[in-house]
């Protein structure tokens, strides 16, 4: 039990099976994986290896076909839709490849969006920490890709989640911006102990992480 207490995320024989026509596709084929509190992990593998599905299941965006997922020791398979949403809001911060900011909101409003009780000071502080001083009121369309991704990291952090899940966070960025983003994530992990999992194709990005997990055909190799 002591060992389990250190795990933010536990995959226990997790299967995700999609039906494509007559064919069954095992996106996840019995994954067993523990993510320790404070770890910085990257998941690599070819397209279709199941790494994005692993991230979606880990972030309770998708439910496993079989097997169990424990988040902070709690089995997520029994959660209602509302409880899932609450878990996502409070325990998980998502960073997407394509930033996925709301185009009609300013940077500051985007960061405040997941908060039930908006804390303006905290949002401003986070944006400043991301190096976005003076750009709080800019719309996403007025920001560069690297800046947008930093806004989305601030949004992911706003509710102090147990876990940051990043799906190809550098996928749309040039090398310089990719390094900035990975540097920010590394700092968050090292200085503040935030647990981070990234899915990436980019070996340069993976180098920033402490542990690299390779996936193939729905399982970890």
């Amino acid at each position: 039990m002591n060992d389990q207490n250190n795990n933010v995320l536990e995959f226990k024989d997790v299967w995700k099976i999609y039906q494509m026509g007559d064919e069954k596709i095992n996106a996840l084929a019995g994954v067993n994986l523990n993510i320790r509190d404070g770890s910085f992990t990257s998941i690599m593998g070819p397209s279709g290896s199941g790494k994005s599905t692993l991230l979606h299941v880990g972030g309770i965006l998708d439910m496993p076909t079989r097997g169990n997922l424990l988040l902070n020791g709690k089995d997520t398979s029994t959660l209602s839709g509302k409880e899932q949403a609450t878990f996502r809001r409070n325990e998980i911060g998502f960073v997407f490849q394509r930033f996925n900011l709301m185009p009609q909101l300013s940077a500051l409003e985007n960061v405040l969006l997941p908060m039930i009780k908006p804390d303006l000071e905290k949002a401003k502080e986070l944006l400043d920490k991301m190096g976005l001083e003076g750009k709080h009121n800019k719309r996403p369309s007025q920001l560069s890709g690297g800046e947008q991704q930093r806004v989305s990291i601030a949004r992911a952090l706003i509710n102090n989640p147990s876990l940051i899940l990043a799906d190809e966070p550098t996928g749309e960025l040039d090398t310089k911006n990719a390094e900035v983003i990975m540097g920010i994530l590394q700092d968050l992990n090292k200085k503040e102990g935030v647990t981070i999992i990234i899915v990436t194709h980019n070996p340069l990005a993976a180098e920033f992480t402490d542990e690299i997990i390779e996936m193939r055909d729905g399982n970890i190799i």
């Binding site: 972030g59 839709g81 949403a85 609450t86 809001r89 996925n100 997941p114 949004r155 509710n159």
Partner: peptide, 16 residues
């Protein structure tokens, strides 16, 4: 569609 997906991913319920 994608924005609605993001809203749900960052913790909004279907009802919201």
């Amino acid at each position: 569609t994608r924005e609605i997906g993001v809203l749900k991913a960052i913790g909004f319920t279907s009802r919201e």
